[in-house]
Simulated assay, not measured.
Amino acid sequence: MKAYKNIVVPTDGSVNSKRALEHAVLLATSMQASITLVYVANIVSVISNFDQIPNASGYVTEQVALDMEEEGKGVLEEFSKEIPQDVEVKSVFEVGSPGPAVLSVAKKYEADLIVMGSRGLGPLKGLFMGSVSSYVVTHAPCPVLIVK
């Protein structure tokens, strides 16, 4: 069996991402690996829902970004508490498109494995898997474990 040293775990606070973290913790504990938690704020998707607000409203955009950052850092902190103290953990907050951002973090931190939920809190776009997990499976440079 391959030894994993760094496991990337994307999270959005959903039940499936919590289940993914449980699996990642088991693997990390047994292989003495570290865990890199990733939260990606997809601000473009959120702001596009405000089609009634003029683009000149910079305050709204700025406030949405601040709220998303606060939410993301809160989720990362909550998930970090679920990881035993003997497992090294890093938390990464990113802004961008979730699939490519997760892969960018995996590359930057030299991930040996990505463990993620099959569906998150976003709209369902895939038949069996969410669009982000499907994207990551298709493009990842390392193995991906999808947790239902």
Rank of each mutant, 00 (worst) to 15 (best):
I83Y: 12
E22A: 11
L26M: 13
L66I: 07
V95S: 00
Y109P: 00
I43H: 02
R119A: 09
G126K: 08
Y39P: 04
Y59M: 11
S14I: 05
K81H: 04
V38Y: 02
T36I: 12
V44C: 02
V44M: 05
E70Q: 09
S118F: 14
A33S: 08
Q85K: 06
I7G: 05
S17M: 13
G13K: 00
L37Y: 08
V8G: 08
N16L: 15
S80T: 14
G99R: 04
V115K: 04
V9S: 04
D12G: 01
V87D: 04
A101G: 12
N55W: 02
V9L: 05
G58L: 07
E78C: 08
P100N: 07
V46G: 02
K18N: 09
L21A: 09
N42L: 08
E88R: 08
Y59P: 01
E70V: 11
L27I: 15
V9E: 01
Y59Q: 09
V15K: 15
D112G: 15
P98N: 06
L113W: 14
S104Q: 04
D12H: 01
G74T: 06
P123K: 07
A106K: 02
L26G: 08
I7N: 06
L21T: 08
A106I: 06
V92K: 03
R119V: 10
Y39G: 05
A111V: 07
A65D: 00
K73N: 14
V105P: 01
K125A: 14
F50H: 03
R19L: 11
A33R: 04
G13S: 03
P98G: 06
G58Y: 09
T29W: 15
V87Y: 12
S34T: 11
T11K: 01
L124C: 06
V95E: 05
S34P: 04
S45N: 10
S45P: 05
L121G: 00
P84I: 14
E88P: 00
E71H: 07
I7R: 02
Y39C: 07
K107S: 14
S34Y: 11
L27S: 07
V95T: 10
L21D: 04
A24V: 01
E78T: 11
K90E: 10
V89L: 11
V95G: 02
S80R: 13
R19H: 15
T11A: 10
I35Q: 00
D112S: 06
G96L: 04
L113E: 06
P123M: 10
I7Y: 14
I47F: 00
G96E: 03
I35C: 07
L121N: 09
L27A: 12
E110Y: 13
V40R: 05
E88H: 11
P10M: 06
S30D: 01
L21P: 01
E69F: 11
V8W: 10
T29A: 15
A24S: 05
K81F: 10
V102P: 06
K90M: 08
N55M: 01
K125S: 11
S91L: 03
L76A: 01
E82I: 08
N16T: 13
V87I: 15
V64M: 10
V38M: 10
L26H: 15
A41L: 05
E62Y: 00
T11E: 04
